[in-house]
């Protein structure tokens, strides 16, 4: 399957500040890719580079087969971009906005537009400047979904929204998954975990991992071992893929970042005095927290590498 988005060692510097540091990434067509990371991690910078809002300092990227520098004009007939802090034409009503943008898109679907207006319960006569944050986001989303873009790019779309609106938006995106590629950024892991197929984690401009969410969830486990006696330190031959080891009086806890079916055997060999072994799957949030705390970069995988979305 071809890639909807590819970046190669792409970086962005603002004088001495490195906003994005040599990010290499591949997002397959049809994926729902969640780019997560703390505020200021470089998510918005990466998205704006891809949307050609500004050029990269070094590196390159392609979006739907176009070099990022060529993403303009007609290219946006197939690409949708919605951002939490986008400046909308506030003097227009929602109806005016839809009327205005409609002629820009040859593939605009009037039926879908009507369906979205109804689904989002959009007040067509109300001006954008008088809308709540959630309603603005729904109006913006309706104005891009109606032309059935091949790629939807969302920058923090759910930030500051109440749960009801957030679920509405997620539902509408979920309905489009498969027919379109969705690339969204968020600093809240829990909100994207439910529908993302791929996930990438940015920290201080560096991409710490990028892979299918299912694979990520499969290989991370939280391990707790209760010992018969006192434990002072981890076994000397413990693998480097065991993150954040903590030894208390009679127990050992760590995160295994390369969990396989052989892991229980290895645990038994390294902890012969174990009286109880607990191996639990982890949420995306706890995986990210574990990686962030470890300060290590687990073997980073490129989404789509040797797998299908």
């Amino acid at each position: 399957m071809s890639a909807a988005i590819e970046t190669y060692l792409i970086s962005k510097h603002y004088r001495r500040t490195v906003a994005l540091d040599k990010v290499t990434l591949e997002i397959p067509e049809g994926a729902v890719y969640a780019l997560v990371g703390a505020n200021g991690a470089g998510k918005t910078t990466l998205i704006r580079l891809l949307m050609n809002i500004f050029p990269p300092s070094t590196g390159s990227a392609t979006v739907l087969g176009l070099a990022s520098g060529d993403v303009s004009g007609h290219a946006f007939e197939r690409i949708a971009y919605v951002s939490e802090n986008q400046e909308m034409p506030d003097a227009l009503t929602i109806g005016g906005l839809l009327d205005y943008v409609r002629p820009f898109y040859p593939r605009w679907d009037l039926e879908l537009e009507a369906q979205l207006v109804q689904q989002f319960d959009l007040p067509l006569q109300r001006k954008l400047k008088h809308l709540s944050r959630g309603m603005r986001m729904k109006a913006a989303l309706a104005s891009v979904l109606a032309y059935r873009p091949a790629l939807i790019v969302l920058d923090e779309p759910f930030s500051g929204l109440d749960p009801l609106v957030r679920d509405e938006l997620i539902e509408s995106l979920r309905e489009r998954s498969g027919e379109t590629t969705i690339f969204l950024s968020s600093h809240d892991m829990s909100e994207v975990e439910s529908f993302a197929t791929h996930v990438g984690f940015l920290e201080q401009g560096r991409l710490l991992f990028s892979e299918r969410l299912a694979v990520l969830a499969d290989r991370f486990r939280e391990v707790q071992i209760t010992m018969g006696g006192t434990v002072k330190m981890m076994p000397p031959h413990a693998p480097a893929t065991w993150l954040n080891p903590q030894c208390s009086e009679s127990s050992v806890r760590f995160v295994d970042s390369q969990y396989t079916d052989d892991t229980p055997v290895m645990l038994a060999a390294l902890f012969p005095d174990a009286v109880k072994v607990s191996i639990e799957p982890m949420t995306l949030r706890s995986i990210v927290v574990a990686i962030a705390r470890s300060g290590r970069t687990p073997k980073s995988k490129v989404a789509g590498e040797g797998e299908t979305a």
Binding site: M51, I53, G73, H74, A75, F76, E77, I79, Y81, S83, N85, Q86, E87, M88, P89, V101, F104, Y105, A140
Partner: peptide, 8 residues
Amino acid sequence: RQFWITRP
């Protein structure tokens, strides 16, 4: 942040 720069 202008909306129009990511429109056709």
